[in-house]
Amino acid sequence: MNSRGPVRRTLGCALGLTLCATLPAFGQAIDPLERAWPAVVKVYGAGGFQGVPAYGSGVIVDARGFVLTAWSIALRTPSLRAVDVDGRSYPAVIWRADPGLGVALLKLELPVGGLGAAKVELRPLALGRSEAVSPGDTIYTLGNPFGFVYGAERVAVQRGVVTTVGAPQEDARVLNLPERLPRLILHDAPHNPGTQGGPLLTRSGELVGICGRIVESRATNTLLNFAVPTELLRDFVREAITWRSPNPDPPRPPAESAAGPPVTGLRLLRAHLVRSPLAYVERVVPESPAARAGFEPDDLVFRLAGRTIRSCRDYDQVLESLAAGQEVEVVVKRGPALITLRLRLEAP
């Protein structure tokens, strides 16, 4: 190509009016989303094996390049990167992880400026007040389901309502839920691989949660779409961004006491029957807390400290989670009636 002249002359004469219909840009969004969009990034880790998606989403929460996303083992890679709404790709590191909470804070490596590198101005989204969220609220989620958009393409928007807020009683039976989530937001907007890490927004565009990974409820065989509420993330973010270097190792969970569950004096019927997982009382140890509470053999334990007991295993699990010294309510079925007993737990 010696000269641009001939090219220009032969090719460059087409006028505007010979164009096809004006082409659209990528599209605008309704107001609240338009504000949130620049803060959403596509996150690429090292998954893709055993059903763990390599792709996800994240939210820029600080202009210095801090991104909140959902915790996943796929983030543990030196090739971790994030792509912003303009299609810029940044190398990223895990600045802090909290698998118990189900989130991680990433730090993007921003270009330092200078030759050939435009200064990047990130447009973060502030953490909103998730305390005000309640069931029935309209919500939007932004994310990259199935990871099929990339570069400057905009991630997908889903709308739904808040299903419930709190720590559902069933949480122990939900697969794969982060272990130390005292509160979560469930919603009914579509949730697919790749949506995790994206923002949960109120109808006015306030960031109130980070979408979690896909979890399934064993109790209902349904997928639960959960988000980690921002109220649980404020301290996490505030503290982590003061650090001078990444510290991706998750905090150790507090050591379990080796003492074992509190003592009740109840002996459940644990005969190796195929058909009965129910928590029937076989024997009440005399002089025990159970005896003082008024338990009798053949009582069926239905609720312990507010938790439904469907099996001996449930009973063991709930009991282990209780501290000695407290008095709990136990609902038992005795004959044709349900009665409530008060049981004081003793130290082993």
């Binding site: 505007g16 010979t18 096809c20 659209p24 570069g151 393409e153």
Partner: peptide, 25 residues
Amino acid sequence: NGVELSNQNHLLTYVSRLPAGRRVR
């Protein structure tokens, strides 16, 4: 056709929405 392109999907979107024989720039 006068619109800035950002990636391959973007170009494919615009090309594939046109029939053969349509003029492009």
